[in-house]
Design a protein around this nucleic acid. Structure first.
Length: 466
RNA sequence: GGCGCGGUAGCCAAGUGGUAAGGCCAGGGUCUGCAAAACCCUCAUUCGUCGGUUCGAUUCCGACCCGCGCCUCCA
């Protein structure tokens, strides 16, 4: 089966191919850098990373732009509270975000694009929209006139033909002609930063940056636009209104949205005490790979219930996979090739790919992995596994890890070097040979305290970092 | 009220019109100097509830109940 994605626009799962050549032009909504990102944010960013890796696995090249929103109301509020300049404040949290992404092993998009570096582009776009009759100005702020875009609502599948019965209305409504209209350019309030770029002093509205930067770097029609599901309305709907009014072309062919994350079955909130940043969890000793695994293992269109128990289960599941890999690398197998097992491995690799290609069904893909692990372990125990089967099994793990990226432990400070470990193992071997099991066990325990786990096998001692 | 997602074993979770993947936990066993690792066995006659369609539904249709999201800044 070909690669397919669920498209929010059509509400269908559709085969995916880039529109032109072999490159996927993709835009994803990045962070607003007003604080440390939380685990819910990272559910979405991890989904985007998964998307990148599956696209690459399918042989596509990537041109991916992610925005950094570095000017908005919350940023201004928090920076003022800290008595920091906007620039200093956002630099701090942008760097924190990038560090967190690295911790979670998220690939950098081909381009990170900051809103404040594209003010002129935005002003120009707002001018163009005005020239086409899509805007009006009230008290120095420029608004988009939704009535001029009949298709408004096509992404979120809202019917705006009638009144917005029951919808809550923004407090600034009196400045707008229609509750749906939104600000392209906001006149500055007292003490707020502003740019004077030809349409009066002010700062850009939130939505315009994405339209402008996406079109600038990726062209008028994107292959994929992705983000969290809460952005469907109004953010992405507004992006469509702006972009399509500007270009007359379809803005994005595929819209992908990641579902929400709950913590212990409840909405994450500071008042419930279940609000986690990545730093909180790593600080409590949870391995970043386990967090990554948990975030990625639940298919992205399903709400993810993030729990500490789930995190512990993830740690153990990863360990099992690492043990399997270590066994492949260290056990001695009889020469030859077991044809049946070779076929089994190839079949698992196909099932893994099929799962991912089916709208990133990671649960399905993981099942294929664990079934193979069990079958090959069983074969090893039974002495049926052959030296000639090792390479294909390791290749399979390599493909798995090119997507999941959890097999390599995160390095910790102050670890013993490989040489130190080998020296201690030699001491222990001597003790064992002399039947001095007390000393052998003592050495093993000492190493364990330093995060080194020893295993005696028929092929000799092997070790791993815990 | 409108739009959308979901309710499958203790927990996480896949899935199909033909009788329930996978992971974790738990109990028992094999192996081992002891461990570790690994494997084996057990662990949902049942898929929110009630109806309907069907030879047959967890899977299709309808109603209802419950959880969550968006409709206002929000991953």
């Amino acid at each position: 089966m070909p690669l397919r994605f669920h498209n929010t626009l059509t509400q269908q799962t559709e085969p995916f191919l880039p529109a032109r050549d072999n490159t996927v032009r993709m835009y994803t909504c990045g962070p607003t850098v007003y604080d440390f990102a939380h685990i819910g944010n990272f559910r979405t960013f991890t989904f985007v990373d998964l998307l990148r890796k599956v696209l690459r696995l399918n042989g596509f090249a990537l041109n991916h732009v992610m925005n950094i929103t570095d000017v908005d109301d919350k940023i201004i509020r928090n920076a003022v509270a800290r008595r920091q300049s906007i620039a200093d404040f956002t630099t701090t949290y942008t760097q924190a975000f990038l560090d967190d992404c690295a911790t979670l092993r998220l690939e950098r998009p081909e381009r990170l694009s900051k809103a404040t570096e594209h003010i002129d582009d935005m002003v120009r776009a707002i001018g163009d929209l005005g020239a086409k009759g899509h805007t009006y100005t009230t008290e120095g702020s420029v608004y988009y006139k939704i009535a001029t875009f009949p298709e408004y609502g096509k992404l979120s599948h809202n019917d705006f033909s009638g009144n917005l019965a029951g919808a809550r209305v923004d407090v600034d409504t009196y400045e707008k002609n229609d509750a749906r209209d939104f600000a392209l350019w906001k006149a500055p309030k007292e003490g707020e930063p502003f740019w004077d770029a030809g349409i009066g002093p002010g700062r850009p509205g939130w939505h315009i940056e994405c339209s402008v930067m996406a079109i600038k770097y990726l062209g008028e029609t994107l292959d994929i636009h992705a983000g969290g599901i809460d952005l469907v309305f109004p953010h992405h709907e507004n992006e469509i209104a702006q972009s399509e009014a500007l270009t007359g072309k379809q803005f994005a062919r595929f819209w992908l949205h990641a579902e929400f994350l709950l913590v212990e079955g409840q909405k994450m909130s500071k008042s419930l005490g279940n609000f986690y940043t990545l730093r909180d969890l790593v600080g409590r000793g949870y391995a970043p790979e386990a967090i990554r695994y948990l975030l990625i293992s639940v298919p992205y269109r399903k709400q993810l219930n993030f729990t500490l128990d789930g995190l512990k289960a993830a740690v153990i599941a990863i360990e099992r996979l690492r043990n399997f890999k270590l066994r492949l690398e260290t056990d001695r197998f009889a020469e030859g090739l077991n044809e049946a097992l070779a076929g089994r491995t190839a079949q698992a690799a196909e099932a893994f790919r099929d799962g991912l290609d089916d709208d990133l069904n990671t649960a399905e893909a993981l099942a294929a992995v664990f079934e193979l692990v069990r079958d090959l372990n069983t074969a090893m125990d039974a002495g049926e596994f052959r030296a000639g089967n090792v390479a294909a099994a390791l290749d399979f793990l390599k493909v798995f890890d090119s997507v999941f990226d959890v097999l390599t432990p995160t390095a910790k400070a102050g670890e013993l070097s490989d040489a130190d470990v080998d020296a201690r193992i030699a001491e222990r071997a001597a003790a064992k040979k002399a039947k001095n099991f007390a000393l052998a066990d003592e050495i093993r325990n000492q190493l364990l305290e330093q995060g080194i786990v020893l295993e005696d096998t028929k092929a000799g001692v092997r070790w791993k970092r815990k």
